[in-house]
């Protein structure tokens, strides 16, 4: 594919992502009905408008897990000798960056929703707590990526760290949900966590949101990998130039005869 047609495709992908996210926002804010009616939250018969956050919260949570999954897969592909190529490491890094951003967004949206519904910003809900641990798990991974060394060293270090972190996800999820179910007696946890998605417009908006965020992810990760590859290529060219320079410098120097 030529560079030009690739950039056309990219722009198209970006436009689709923007349109889809915009459509999700419009649907979530103006089209779907409030849960149990507009004043439902005040009357105590539903969540009212607060639940509209769900249409961003669920897709961003989905995206965070997708991104970390892609990081693990790309790390595996780098570790496997037959598919070892540096672009897998770049993909792993780019995907983890997006994963951390969207994990942070998930946490923020979850807290915003928790305040009116649970009456507090943070209620140690199992899924939110797991997400918080994931946030720090991958923050450490990103810190490890920035410590320097050659690209191969970075790839080896971070691919193993990514798999270690990924193996921890089910264990964290399992232990946290087990831990929180022990505390179900607290009134907070009996709060209306269930939202009845009956309206077809709700279902459609949720699906649209997930699709929109997935396209957005694809677009962002693509651009990020390209940028990283350009940086990497630049560093590579500088290195080649440095090698040539050293060879030239050594060649130009007068050599004394060496004998013993």
């Amino acid at each position: 594919m030529s560079a030009q047609s690739r950039s056309v495709w990219q722009t198209a992908l970006g436009a689709v992502a923007a349109l889809a996210v915009g459509a999700t926002v419009v649907m979530a804010l103006f089209v779907v009905p409030a849960d149990g009616g507009r004043d439902a939250f005040v009357r105590g018969t539903g969540q009212g408008d607060a639940y509209r956050l769900l249409f961003l919260h669920v897709p961003s949570a989905w995206l965070a897990y997708l991104a970390f999954g892609v990081t693990a897969l790309a790390s595996l592909l780098w570790l496997f000798p037959r598919t070892r190529a540096l672009h897998w490491d770049l993909l792993a890094g780019a995907s983890a960056e997006l994963g951390v951003i969207f994990t942070g967004l998930t946490l923020a949206l979850g807290s915003l929703w928790g305040k009116p519904i649970w009456g507090q910003w943070w209620a140690w809900d199992a899924r939110l707590t797991t997400t918080a641990v994931l946030f720090f798990l991958y923050l450490g991974y990103l810190a490890l990526r920035r410590v320097g060394g050659s690209p191969e060293q970075r790839a080896m270090r971070s691919s193993i760290a990514a798999l270690i972190a990924f193996a921890d996800v089910p264990i964290v999820h399992f232990s946290v949900s087990w831990w929180t179910t022990l505390h179900q007696d607290g009134s907070v946890f009996n709060a209306k966590m269930q939202i009845h998605i009956q309206d077809t417009s709700m279902q459609a908006t949720l699906l649209l949101g997930v699709a929109a965020f997935t396209v957005l992810y694809a677009y962002l990760v693509l651009r990020r990998v390209q940028l990283l590859a350009v940086e990497e290529g630049l560093a590579e060219r500088e290195l080649e130039a440095a090698i040539a320079q050293r060879v030239a410098a050594a060649g130009a120097r007068p050599r004394e005869a060496v004998s013993i």
Binding site: G140, L144, V147, D168, V176
Partner: peptide, 15 residues
């Protein structure tokens, strides 16, 4: 770096 890496992974152990 070691605490930032070790402590989140060992969260299930603490629990």
């Amino acid at each position: 770096l070691v605490p930032l890496l070790v402590l989140p992974v060992t969260a299930p152990v603490l629990l």
